[in-house]
Design a protein around this nucleic acid. Structure first.
Length: 535
RNA sequence: GCGGGAAUAACUCAGUUGGUAGAGUGCAACCUUCCCAAGGUUGAAGUCGCGGGUUCGAGUCCCGUUUCCCGCUCCA
């Protein structure tokens, strides 16, 4: 069986979840209270893995380049940021689902029809009309519907005063407020107190009917005055800090601002373990370029990012770039590529590399009335042909999911090896990139006597002092200890044996092929450091 | 949001027509062991997801609920 087929096993996710818990990578949040939906905690191994991945990103995107600098912005930002970016509007409009054709739409944008008026329905073809007719018979058994070609007649508009924009049906779900952003309130005063007060006052001054009619509005107003939102993406902090960063660091376009951190979205559906959760971690970079250079940099960054994921050890054949179709593009983008990974459930997004034009800077410039522009004294202004060009940069954004990255890395690293002809060597191994591995070195006395533990502990101390994650381990037989380290992805094990006392050497054992070499104790730290650097 | 399945020890699971809670692995201690989950002895560990109900008695039957998985739908 090939490895590819191994990983296609439907149980892979279950095995990963089980291993994650058993070996301290990921636990369900608040497990002793029955768990919290879609919230996960990173255990001692998981936190190392995630930090290593994010640290590799930071190194590649910030430290190793002079055109990108980092920031670490507040998760809570001024509510106007989300108003300007469009998140507040699109995240809070009341949505309804048509019960006939399944279309989901904004109630305020739907065609208005007076209550009681005829509501003829029209479908794409006769077959769809027939399906709809059958569905309608169940939805409203006491109405006599008639079908004519692609149309179904007989329905009357209801009290809502609108019909489905797609098929014209008046049958739809309740209006639902989709709050995709997490709302909270800033300040120690409970906004519910203000709400209660306003309700009491309206009741006293205007009576019960007025209160009933305006209840929702009153509540909204009371909450809105102190409302703040947890960021649904880290990107906006980089747009609103564009001038701060550009001026304080004297950055010249093209340049980028990078940020890693948590974001929050009330996803409609959460799924696939840590893949899509309401609280997640992003690694985003906004790269500011002159107008017209978006396509060039989009191509540059999508290739850079694909290569980076490969460097992190993900199999090349499980990675691909996919261009967004025109109708798939977000409102702010004129071109987007997804870096996709072939997860156990199929291809899915790891990172989006989007050309965001000047949409965001423009939106914030308009809303804040600040000039979010860049002046290039060297370039010629294309409009006048004169030296000196002031413009609003365009942006190319590689936005990666750190949490998704961890899952991809785990999926790709997981392998089960069958026993050999002698029935030995069966194991589960995480073939993590050595720099991502939570523990770099296992330090093991072959047996727990003859001074071996003492020597091994001295070697371990040396690694601790050097800041290389190491684990001293004397429990159980040597084979089990190797197996345990294989399961958490430890790339190297140093074993003190009977020869160590005589010639100051230990064996170094490699995780992937179980190969062993003898090396000098004095050189062990350097050997491991070099292996990590070269990996 | 809809439909289906599941939840018993840290993990994987068994538990018969309702009658005192089980195994393997792992974990801990000791012995043995000079290299790939070796062997032996001993031990700890479970309000059977949670809450109700039926019953003399519920892991088992019924209702509710939470969480996870699969499919659909939806979102970015």
């Amino acid at each position: 069986m090939s490895e590819v087929q191994d990983k296609r096993e439907p149980e892979l996710m279950q095995k990963l979840v089980s291993l994650s818990k058993r070996r301290g990578f990921v636990y369900q949040s608040s497990e002793i209270y029955g768990g919290l939906k879609s919230a996960y905690d990173y255990g001692p191994m998981g936190v190392e893995l995630k930090r290593n991945l994010m640290s590799e990103w930071w190194t590649a995107m910030v430290h190793s380049r002079e055109d990108v600098v980092g920031i670490d912005a507040s998760i809570i930002m001024h509510p106007s940021v989300w108003k300007a970016s469009g998140h507040l509007a699109s995240f809070s409009d009341p949505l309804v689902d048509c019960k006939v054709c399944g279309e989901r739409f904004r109630a305020d944008k739907a065609p208005k029809v007076e209550a009681g008026a005829d509501a003829p329905m029209e479908f794409a073809d006769k077959g769809k009309a027939k399906d709809a007719h059958e569905k309608l018979a169940k939805l409203a058994p006491d109405v006599a519907f008639t079908r004519e070609g692609k149309s179904v007649m007989g329905a009357k508009a209801g009290d809502r005063g609108y019909v489905c924009p797609l098929c014209g049906s008046p049958f739809m779900s309740e209006e639902r407020q989709f709050n995709l952003m997490f709302r909270s309130s800033l300040g120690p005063v409970d906004p519910m107190g203000a709400a209660a007060e306003m309700i009491q006052r309206t009741l006293a001054e205007q009576g019960a009917d007025a209160l009933k009619a305006n209840l929702r509005k009153i509540l909204d107003e009371a909450v809105q005055s102190s409302a703040v939102y947890l960021r649904p993406e880290t990107a906006q902090a980089m747009f609103v800090n564009f001038l701060n960063v550009q001026q304080s660091m004297s950055m010249k376009v093209p340049f980028g601002i990078a940020q890693m951190g948590k974001s929050f979205r009330n996803e409609v559906t959460v799924e696939h373990f840590i893949f899509r959760s309401c609280e997640f971690e992003q690694m985003e970079m906004e790269y500011f370029v002159p107008p017209g250079e978006g396509p060039k940099w989009l191509e540059y960054w999508r290739n850079q990012r694909l290569e980076w994921w490969k460097k992190m050890g993900l199999s090349a054949e499980r990675l691909r770039l996919r261009a967004h179709e025109k109708d798939e593009l977000a409102h702010y983008s004129d071109g987007t590529y997804d870096v996709e990974y072939d997860f156990p459930w199929g291809w899915d997004e790891l990172e989006g590399v989007a050309s965001r034009t000047n949409y965001d800077l423009n939106a914030h410039a308009t809303a804040s009335k600040k000039k979010l522009e860049y002046f290039d004294p060297e370039a010629d202004d294309p409009a006048t042909g004169k030296k000196g060009w002031r413009y609003m940069p365009h942006v190319v954004e590689p936005a990666a999911g750190a949490t998704r990255g961890v899952l991809a890395v785990l999926c790709d690293a997981y392998a089960e090896e069958a026993a050999d002809a002698e029935g030995k060597g069966e194991r589960t191994v995480l073939r993590l990139h050595p720099r991502l591995a939570p523990i770099k070195v296992g330090i093991l006395p072959l047996v727990k006597k003859e001074g071996m533990p003492e020597v091994a502990r001295r070697i371990a101390d040396e690694f601790f002092r050097a800041g290389v994650t190491a684990k001293y381990d004397e429990q159980h037989a040597i084979g089990r200890r190797y197996a345990r380290h294989d399961e958490i992805g430890t790339p190297y094990c140093l074993t003190v044996d009977g020869d160590t006392a005589a010639d100051d050497t230990v064996t170094i054992r490699y995780r992937d092929d179980r190969r062993q070499e003898r090396i000098k104790v004095a050189e062990a730290l350097d050997v491991v450091k070099k292996a990590l650097a070269d990996a």
